[in-house]
Design a binder for these strands. Sequence first.
DNA 1: CCGGAAATTAGACAAAGTCCAGATTGCTCT
DNA 2: AGAGCAATCTGGACTTTGTCTAATTTCCGG
Lengths: 136, 136
Amino acid sequence: MHYTRDDMTGLLRSHDINPTHQRIEIAHALFSRQEHLSADQVMGIVNTRHSETSKATVYNTLKLFLEKGLVREVIVDPSKVFYDPNTGPHHHLYEVDSGKLSDIDASAIQISGLPQLPEGMVTEGIDLIVRVRRQT
Amino acid sequence: MHYTRDDMTGLLRSHDINPTHQRIEIAHALFSRQEHLSADQVMGIVNTRHSETSKATVYNTLKLFLEKGLVREVIVDPSKVFYDPNTGPHHHLYEVDSGKLSDIDASAIQISGLPQLPEGMVTEGIDLIVRVRRQT
DNA sequence: CCGGAAATTAGACAAAGTCCAGATTGCTCT
DNA sequence: AGAGCAATCTGGACTTTGTCTAATTTCCGG
């Protein structure tokens, strides 16, 4: 699939987000390559030629996307958060040495035996992370 | 179970760790309360009365414990790493709003359908995190 | 008691992320 | 077009977690 910046406008609107120039660029960075990016990487991509978007805006925008359900947060590395444009049900494979993060489709996976939740609690999400490393 | 500082000495020795004063204190902090603590919290506990252990030592020691398999690292919060004295097979329940982290025994849980690993890779661990929040 | 290895320390540093007050943008209404 | 207003964006200072280093202290075997 090939996403244009115009596609982003529609995508943002459909998620109730005012499509500003910066937001379109950030969304495009995430959705055009289907990768997991950190805030830093997003900033790097968006500001390749000349500086266009401030650090504060990148962080604010990613947080906004998260709230609006446009992206997902992936916490696997103690030092930085990754943002995932794939919001469908899936899990993650993390290569510890290289830091490479890839998706595992959830449809094949079954998790059973989860305990009852504490009173008045709702599940926000179930994260399954398979940590692998190159064999020594 | 009630852990004394002397118990810690044996525990450290059995994990091939030279039991120094600071290491005993840090191990005691983790094992006497069976909780998930961040490096910061460990430092707070160890240095309650008068400052006894430096920041560098706390971080070095926790990393050492991790390498030696005495504790486990739990990455659920984007801003800090937790250390878990329970190294048996188990998963985690994370209460997003309060930051409270608790164990889920792994024996009841079944995960099936995991894909083949890439060539030459070995699993280092499988983390299952159930994120919950107080119902609104 | 001496010498060296292991461990600890204070404090400077680095990186990720937050915060804020001021500047810009883009409406809408006239 | 211009004024008014809310939403957005910005630079930069700041905070927090964690790392690094060079100097000191502790611990032991001989």
